[in-house]
Write a protein that binds this DNA or RNA. Structure first.
Length: 351
DNA sequence: AATTCGGGGCA
DNA sequence: TGCCCAGAATT
């Protein structure tokens, strides 16, 4: 169905029914307590491709560390990544940090309400622009996330909603009187009733306006994307330790787990040879810790930790961006989940 | 338009 | 195991 073929009566009836339902049943989420732009900004960054239940554990602690956007702008990147540890998509954390700095330097510390200025901030895309503008500032800007995409595709019985189509439909549906609540009402519907599988159409407040419901195609809207084969990779890790500490290395800023700390990946080289290559003197024979399997979205990794004790007195590391950490001395070292498992496994092996 | 970015929860 | 989640940036 084309966006411009939606009647005005349909739009207004649908909006009223959905907002009434939202007013009665909206979940009490931490970022719905107020519309402080900094709190909304942080919530939208954290919620990118991440479930509400996951974000809740990180949300309030974030503001204890970084109570204001100025505090965030002045924080060290290590501390920012540590607060983000385990949340994934770590570029978001670095972008949020940079956004805070841009706001401090170019907007006098005030988050802009203008969509064009929001869109120019690092890590703020089309969706986040509309979400922040509407929720924090009551600007009637459309926003389309995964939930809203599904809801709109079903309402208009559209099998393959393109980005253009979604923009047009969302813009047509924007509610000028309550832009933020409207954005959230659509997302809430997708998260609670209009779910990908087994949607609760019998409980849906807008089923009488739903094209897919009328056509009996709800489960097929939108059409599933074609699946890709996820490659598997064996990744050896060098667990070099001495004096009760183990060597970690900062990963490059770009690419997988960028900016986080991890065990070095020696490639084809053995653990003892690798130790020598970074200026360390091996002590005794290398050993192996249990494999750690980890499934990234686009990669299935099998980490093979190769342990090698080294001399901490006679040698010193030549590798860039490395640090020694021991039991309970991780400090602001942000470790990815799989690396944390290897670290804990090493601790256990040391007694 | 297609890829690359984490991690967790659930059928 | 497969799927998807309050997506953005890059190509």
């Amino acid at each position: 169905m084309q966006p411009d073929s939606i009647s005005a009566d349909t739009v207004s009836g649908l909006r009223r029914a959905l907002l009434d339902h939202y007013d009665r049943t909206a979940r009490d989420l931490p970022w719905r307590r107020d519309t402080d732009p900094y709190r909304i900004l942080v919530s939208e960054f954290m919620l990118q491709q991440t479930r509400v239940e996951t974000v809740i554990r990180y949300y309030e602690p974030w503001f204890e560390r970084f109570p204001s956007i100025e505090a965030l702008a002045q924080a060290d990147e290590d501390e920012v990544l540590k607060a983000w540890e385990g949340l994934g998509y770590y570029r978001r954390a670095r972008n949020l940090h940079r956004t805070a700095q841009v706001v401090a330097e170019r907007h006098e510390g005030t988050i802009p309400s203008d969509p064009a200025e929001l869109r120019a901030l690092p890590g703020v895309g089309e969706y986040t622009t509309g979400a922040i503008a509407s929720i924090a500032f009551d600007v009637p800007a459309p926003a389309v996330d995964g939930n809203i995409r599904r809801v709109l595709a079903r309402l208009l019985d559209e099998e393959k909603p393109t980005a253009r189509w979604l923009r047009d439909v969302a813009a047509r549906f924007v509610f000028r009187h309550r832009p933020g609540d409207w954005t959230q009402a659509l997302m809430e519907l997708g998260a609670t009733l209009c779910t990908p599988k087994a949607p609760a159409c019998n409980a849906c407040p807008v089923s009488s306006w739903c094209g897919a419901y009328a056509a009996g195609t709800v489960e097929d809207r939108p059409a599933p994307s074609k699946k890709r084969v996820v490659p598997s990779r064996v990744i050896p890790l060098a667990v070099l330790h001495g004096a009760g500490e183990v060597l970690l290395q900062r990963r490059p800023a770009e690419g997988l787990l960028g900016g986080l700390w991890a065990f070095p990946e020696p490639g084809e080289v053995g653990a003892s040879d690798f130790a020598v290559s970074v200026g360390l003197e091996p002590i005794g024979e290398p050993s192996i810790l249990p494999e750690v399997e980890h499934r990234f979205t686009h990669l299935h990794a099998r980490y093979v930790p190769m342990v090698q004790e080294v001399d901490r007195i006679r040698g010193s590391v030549k590798a860039e961006g490395s640090r020694w950490v021991g039991r309970g001395r991780l400090g602001d070292t942000a470790l990815p989940v799989a690396q944390r498992k290897v670290f804990d496994s090493w601790l256990k092996s040391m007694g």
